[in-house]
Design a protein around this nucleic acid. Structure first.
Lengths: 189, 189, 189, 189
DNA sequence: AATGAATGAGTATTCATTCAT
DNA sequence: TATGAATGAATACTCATTCAT
């Protein structure tokens, strides 16, 4: 990504997170990016159009954080723990941004774009599932990509709930993560 | 709820869903509700303050739809199927609204209010879980309320994914619902 | 015309004349009209849409000034002199406004509207021509309305030229008026 | 005129005519001229300063078109017909541009410049008048230059009216031209 | 001479909210 | 309660112009 485009995106992430969608002004974004007002529009056609770039950065960061903590040869359960840790950590840090992206999805009418952005993320988890199935750590009849998408959704929804409503202390977090992991591994029966 | 307050809320739901958060104007809401501009402010202190009322209506509708299709004495699996059907149907119809509510949660700083609104929903699912545990259809060690919250999150995230990206046809929907149900019942191992 | 609409129109005339099309701001117009910024848009949908209202006022003023100086029973030549005086005086006072209206005609694509505004003006001159033809002061074969339109055009173009390029002193004005009148009465042969 | 200066002027004519004064951007002009943004300012100090160059081109074109259709030795009436044809044709093609030039005259405060541009035009018509006076086809007491200016004004105002309001079909055009010619030759009495 | 990326001043328009009736 | 005319603060976006290359 062009240096200035990246500077704008990072500044926008910061300002959107601080002020929310409606109170974020282009003027504050460019101030943070150290460029002039008009320069913004050389890189993005509108305020909202920064959103996909932000999503890309979040996906990048998530994958980086996950991979830097994960061991590809580790047992499934360990890798899922790292994934849960990563998602809880990203959610805690960026919950508001995710909500804004999510709310923007509908209006943007560019589903294709969004899918393309999230594919790398789904790929990473999908690989883990395939490997676990090969090692007979996991039910082999589950379709890998579909399961990856669902698992990520499960983890994100649990993290959201936690940081939105229940968040109390570190031990509450650990408990929730543990319950989540068990639920995913064993189901409810 | 006062007749006019309800009229405003319903009109707002419609307009928010049609135009999104930023392009929704009080002027269009009152037009849909058949009242004057100023009257809006007799019932709500601001544009954003309609959001909790919308959330209440959505929760009401969800519970009604679920209970009208559910049989309380039916086996757990049937009841979960009805719950999944309800959530998928509500998500399909109101996805954008949920996203807006969700994005609004952070800014509103009135977590307590939101929790109160969702409690009845969690209660209903929580009861089902308790009954299933009593009937030994379900792992008795799971904490009912916590599991209810997680399950609802799982189902909503699966529905979101479906209607956001994958939605193709009726059979895709059925397949996703089936996978979801199995994952919830049996986990991934 | 509504009191406020008139106030806006008169203020706009003044500001447009002072600053020209491009340097006129709505903010200065409303300041002159003694109303708030937003109120402007209750009466006119855009800055440019004041133009037809200005044209109406100019036509009104021209007719008033002409009729207050004219004697309907006077000989043709006297009435034409009064018309020339009126047009030269209005042109001198409002030349820039006329130019702006004129330049705006093309873009507005609402020819019908403009024709309606100018009709009363053409009517007045048309009546004089018909009366003169009836009194055998004028060539009876000339079509009255068409001739009225042409005569007004002649007079305006002469006045424009004068105040644009030649304007020197009172006697230059008198001379031009005299030449114009003779040309109109007798042609060039 | 330098090749590039001419290219800019021609492109500007086109864009001004298409978009009007306010919606014309330097960016679109340079695009049409096939040059870079900055290059514009090597040839013109500002956007508005292209106007006189446009006026020059229009005057050139008018004179060329007139002279290529006119016979200098022909009777006055024929030459006036050619002049009327030329003015009607140029007006039909470039009415909006004339209006913009005209509206720009007031603001530009460079009357001298404008007069210089139009002089050649007035000269041509002035010569015809002098010759006609010499041939006793025309009232010898009329001051040639002054009459030339007035006649051109008459013809332009008639053409404007026609193409602005009345324009219907070829026969309406012929009729208007005929009436105009008679009025100019014989006056209204 | 030519380029085109960068600038940043400038403004029309919108719309949540108020308040006199 | 209800109205809707009036308010005026707030901001995305444009575009003429500059200047380093």
């Amino acid at each position: 990504m062009d240096d200035k485009k990246r500077a704008i995106t990072l500044s926008a992430m910061h300002v959107f997170q601080k002020n929310g969608m409606e109170k974020t002004t282009v003027s504050e974004i460019v101030k943070g990016a150290g460029i002039a007002q008009g320069t913004f529009y050389l890189y993005f056609p509108s305020k909202l159009s920064v959103m996909p770039a932000i999503a890309s950065v979040l996906v990048e960061n998530t994958i980086e954080q996950f991979e830097s903590n994960n061991t590809a040869q580790a047992p499934l359960i360990s890798q899922l723990q790292v994934l849960i840790d990563t998602i809880f950590s990203m959610t805690q840090e960026h919950r508001d941004l995710y909500a804004m992206l999510f709310a923007g999805l509908g209006s943007s009418q560019q589903m294709d774009q969004w899918e393309a952005i999230y594919q790398p993320y789904y790929q990473v988890v999908s690989q883990i599932i395939k490997r676990a199935q090969h090692n007979q750590e996991m039910n082999a009849s589950l379709q890998a990509h579909q399961t990856a998408v669902m698992l990520i959704g499960f983890m994100e929804s649990a993290a959201d709930q936690l940081f939105l409503f229940d968040y109390a202390n570190e031990s509450a977090v650990s408990a929730k993560k543990q319950t989540l992991l068990e639920l995913i591994l064993n189901g409810i029966t």
